[in-house]
Structures are given as C-alpha cells and as structure tokens.
Design a protein around this nucleic acid. Structure first.
Lengths: 211, 211
DNA sequence: TCTGACCTTGACCAATTGGTCAAAAACTAG
DNA sequence: CTAGTTTTTGACCAATTGGTCAAGGTCAGA
C-alpha cells in the first residue's frame, strides 16, 4: 500500500497531489480508456513524474478505481434527488435537466463510465448490481406509485429510466458524432437547448396521464 | 501492402482467412477497444499465428479500419431504409424495430462503434461528417416534409434521430448496466420486448400529430 | 509429377510501459 | 537549527506487444 493510504492523517501535500492526479487521470482515462492510458500521461498531466505518481497510488488500476469511485457518487446524485414529495412531472423534468447539465458540464465523467460499462463493467459490476440497482428499484417503486395515483401514464419505469439515461448521456458520450452530424454551425448551448426541448416535448409529454 | 491487397484476384484462402480475421477482430476490438486489443488475441481467435495475420493485414490499425469499414454499411442500413413513400409513423416504428434488432443480434458492431466514437472517432470522423451527415440530413428533410404535411407532430428531427439512436443502442452498448439493474431474472427477449413497447408507447406516441 | 507462387510460423527485435529503487531534496516538529 | 519524516525523481528492469524475417510447407496449374 502507498504511504498515502496507510498513513492515518493525510498531509497537505498528499491532499493536493492526490487531487491533481485524480483530475488528470479523469481526463486521460476518459479520452483513452483504461488500456490506452499511460501512467506517464497521467503523471505529466498532474505535473509530476511517474514514480511520484506511484508513490501516491500503487498501480494504474488503483488510480482508475479511485477515479471511478470518486465519480460514482456524483453520478448517482440526480436520480437520488428524485423527490417522492414532489409533483411527478416536475420531478422528472428536473431530472432530465440535471442529467443534461451533467452531460454538458462533466462530459469526462460520462465518458469514463461509458467506457467502463462498454467493457463489461469489470471493476464496478458489484456497484451496479448493488447500490445502483437498489437506487433504481427504489425510484421504480416511486414511479409506480405515481402511476397508480394517476399522476403518470402507465409505462415501464425501468425502460423510462434507460431511455432518459441513454438520451441525456448520448450528448456527452457520442459528442463526436453529434457534432459531426449537426455540423460546425451548431454550438454547445444550442445543442443542449434543443435536446432539452425535444425530451420535454416528446418524452415528458408521453408521460402525462390521459385524463 | 500485403499480398492480399495488391493481388488482382483474391484466392479462396485469402477470402476465407480474411473473413476469419475480421470476425475475430470484431469480437476482440468490441470487447477491449483498439488499445486493449492485441494482435495475438485476434490471431488466436482467427485460428492462426500472429505473423500469419500480419501477412493479410499490414498492421493492427489496418485490421481495425477494415472491421470498422465492413460494419459501417450494415450500420447505416436501417436509417437509409426509411422510405419517403411510406406512412410516416409506420416508417419510424419500423426503424425503431430494426435498430433494436441490430442491438440484439449484433451487439458487437454496436460496441465497436461506440468505442470509436467515445474516443473522438479519430478514424471515422470523415465518414461521420460526410456519408453519415448527408444521410441524416436527407432523412431530416424527409421528416420535415412529413411534419409540414401534418403527418407528424412538429419536433426537431435531429434530436429525434439522436434519441432513437441513443435509446436503441443503449441496450447493446450498456448491456452490462441494463442486466445489472434488471437483475438475473430478466432474459434478453423480455428486455427487448419491453424496450420496444416503451419506445412505441412513449416516443412514437409523442410523434403523433394533435388532430 | 513438377514448378512457381502462395501460405504459415518459430524465432527474433525494438519500442513501450507498468512498476522498482536508491539517493537526494523538501518539509515539519521540537 | 536539527533530526526525522515525507516527497521527488533519474536510472533501471522485466513483461508485453507490434511488427520482421527467413525458412519450410502447401496448393494450383501445366
């Protein structure tokens, strides 16, 4: 284990350097994937030498795990924030907005997860089957209650969540494709405004109960 | 250049071996990405030695390009099949079905593209900005005509296409996550049936004109 | 069957890269 | 200021891996 991990109290330098490493590692892993990333790239991005990086994290995989772990909580936040006490359609609209904001403002995190899951989620399978599944199951139950109360049209909540994930994250994960198709003219703000408008007009509208 | 490429007439063995290589390469690249894949893995999967593989393709990148290229046409097919002469809602329903079928039956191709685009599409940017953009622009114009004719509700066709891509491909690209969330019970057939039902009930319904 | 072209691979090479180590530099408590 | 601890890195090592090469095996046509 690295000193940083076994020492009881973390020094000022440890906190700083670990932060720089994780920040650089996020960029590199998101851009190149786990296999494509090199410790030298990460170290350079963090403004230090490779042995110095290894002084803080014992291995490339440990850096990767740390970045993933750090991002996970941020990632689950929007869904967790879905409020049972709120008005159903407004809550889901809020969720869409938060997810789109995350895609826009933190695309690296989105791509990091996309890469991990694309590869079969070898390192976070347990988190997906545990924390994530529990959270989703809880929100699915909530949506079912909203449906039973006649506040939402009756559609499978699991597939609703998948559709929201897929569509919102698409703009970060497949950014290269979206930009290519929309052409040079389209700027970021316009892209995301259009995405939000479409989702609210089509998906949200599809959730409105018949009455 | 490899013999296979410069020879005028391809021998029986060339056709066979190149097919085996591309098939194996699809699996390996889809699973491990470009950087994570090794020529030995691909060669072994194709039932031959690494030098033998290099006899047919000059480099790892050339194998990768070949696999990407081969898959591209298949990939554009469903969108290209959108028929101007057909009934708008039925056409889009057919498109959703075809894309979901591709996700289910050819997940490796889906993941291959996802990986490439996630990395910024370094090798197919020109195709995305050329062929793909042209095809999308053409279909966007078609959808706009349908909207103008009052056959579809007025929503941005670009974002409609993105939403359909995102949602259908999600089931292949993020398979690990979908399975984890739905749990062990859910089998493939049920997953895809649920996805199709949701998309038809929500998205397709959202495209129906008001009248 | 013979011959020339095609196919196959074991052995090898050089570059990359994850990780080690010892020694020096910087920091901090007393 | 001093001694001990923490931090930093140049040099190095071993494993992996993309790609080469020469030698031997196989195949198709005459």
């Amino acid at each position: 284990m690295a000193r940083a991990a076994e020492t009881r109290r973390r020094t000022r330098i440890q906190v700083e350097k670990e932060g720089q490493i994780l920040s650089s590692a996020l960029d590199v892993f998101a851009q190149s994937g786990f296999a494509g990333a090199t410790l030298d790239d990460i170290a350079t991005g963090a403004g230090m030498s490779k042995p110095n990086l290894i002084y803080y994290f014992d291995s490339k995989e440990e850096v990767y795990r740390a970045v993933l772990g750090r991002t996970l909580e941020t990632w689950l936040e929007p869904l967790a924030a879905l409020d049972p006490g709120g008005e159903p359609l407004a809550e889901i609209r809020g969720y869409i907005q938060r997810k789109l904001e995350m895609s826009r403002d933190r695309p690296q995190e989105s791509r990091l997860f996309a890469g991990e899951i694309l590869a079969g989620a070898p390192l976070i399978r347990d988190v997906l089957e545990g924390e994530l599944k529990d959270l989703v199951d809880e929100k699915v139950a909530l949506i079912r209650r909203w449906i039973a109360a006649g506040k939402l049209a009756p559609h499978d909540p699991y597939h609703l969540i998948f559709a929201l994930w897929a569509t919102t994250q698409h703009y970060a994960d497949f950014d290269a494709q979206v930009r290519a198709v929309l052409g040079r003219e389209s700027d970021e703000a316009t892209r995301y405004a259009g995405a939000e408008r479409f989702m609210e007009e089509v998906i949200l509208r599809g959730l409105r109960p018949d009455t």
